[in-house]
């Protein structure tokens, strides 16, 4: 019983890592722009596909390369290319609207539409057949007592933690992080202080999208079947996780992702798997009803 609980907690950590990585991207963009970037889940999907194409390119054109070498080439390339997709979206869809001073909700709708374009464009261009991701590293299973863990799962958890530490460092300790926090505090005074607001926003999108690309790569290594709609559901769930953690706060997104991962894995462990969404979302809803600003969110007081 105890062993299976530990095993489930470990699986929850691994499953929550994906949610955390995606939720971090949501929360970064939200923290700076107060924009819910609903296309983020689909950027995750695009990241998985980019990883697939990059990895198969290297495997196909330079045969004989060892798997770990291909992987080390694939990781940075995927992150850069996915960041390119995110920045393109910001540049052609969100920035013109922001310049015009359109209502925030119209930007959210544009983001939703961009997500649909990415999903269905992928389906239309690549067809409905699912792609299976090549196996780059051999699986090694470590067993401690009754708890078994693979090297891949450990790598996923470690990279989620590393990404969190890196982002926390960037946002709280560096100058550009200070600029990001400043923009979220007051969007109108910041340009007057000589801070290039567009550069900071592009930097935010680069950070968020490259994390989504990394998540896509790790996800497709762990569950090597790709399909165009894989990003939609996981993206919505990660967003909910980010909000439960307290959106706009990096610690909140990180912990919210893990919380959702734990809850889902534990529900599946004790109930039929069709109850997963029902119970997980009910718990999150209860948390939000009792703590409306999320676990780490700060209640804003409204001035009259």
């Amino acid at each position: 019983m105890f062993d299976s609980l530990i095993q489930n907690l470990f699986n929850g950590l691994q499953w929550g890592s994906f949610y955390s990585l995606i939720a971090l991207g949501y929360t970064l963009v939200y923290g700076v722009l107060t924009l819910i970037n609903f296309a983020h889940g689909d950027i995750f999907m695009v990241g998985a596909y980019i990883a697939f194409f990059v990895a198969s390119f290297f495997l196909g054109h330079a045969t004989g390369l060892p798997g770990w070498f291909v992987l080390t080439l694939t990781i940075p390339l995927t992150m850069i290319l996915t960041a390119g997709v995110g920045v393109t979206l910001e540049r052609i869809a969100y920035r013109p609207l922001r310049r015009k001073g359109a209502d925030r909700l119209y930007v959210v709708i544009t983001a939703l539409m961009c997500g649909l374009i990415l999903e269905n464009g992928n389906l239309a261009l690549l067809g409905a057949s699912r792609k299976s991701f090549p196996e780059l590293v051999d699986k090694t299973v470590y067993t401690f007592g009754m708890v078994s863990m693979t090297n891949l799962k450990i790598a996923v958890i470690i990279s989620a933690i590393l990404v969190f530490v890196l982002l926390q460092f960037i946002v709280t300790k560096t100058k550009i992080g200070m600029a990001m926090r400043a923009i979220s505090y007051d969007k109108f005074a910041v340009p007057l202080m000589g801070i290039p607001i567009d550069t900071v926003i592009v930097f935010t999108f680069i950070l968020g999208s490259s994390m989504a690309g990394l998540a896509g790569l790790l996800y497709s290594l762990s569950y090597p079947i790709l399909d165009p709609y894989m990003g939609a559901l996981i993206g919505w769930k990660a967003f909910i996780a980010a909000v439960v953690g307290g959106i706009g706060d990096i610690r909140g997104a990180f912990l919210g992702g893990f919380l959702l991962g734990f809850v889902e894995i534990l529900v599946v462990a004790f109930f039929p798997s069709t109850f997963r969404d029902l119970i997980a979302f009910s718990i999150l809803l209860l948390i939000l009803v009792y703590k409306p600003t999320g676990l780490f969110g700060v209640a804003k007081t409204t001035k009259i």
Partner: peptide, 11 residues
């Protein structure tokens, strides 16, 4: 605002 949006999505 956005917290209510989440509640509706979760619903």
């Amino acid at each position: 605002g956005d917290y209510l949006a989440i509640i509706t999505i979760a619903a």
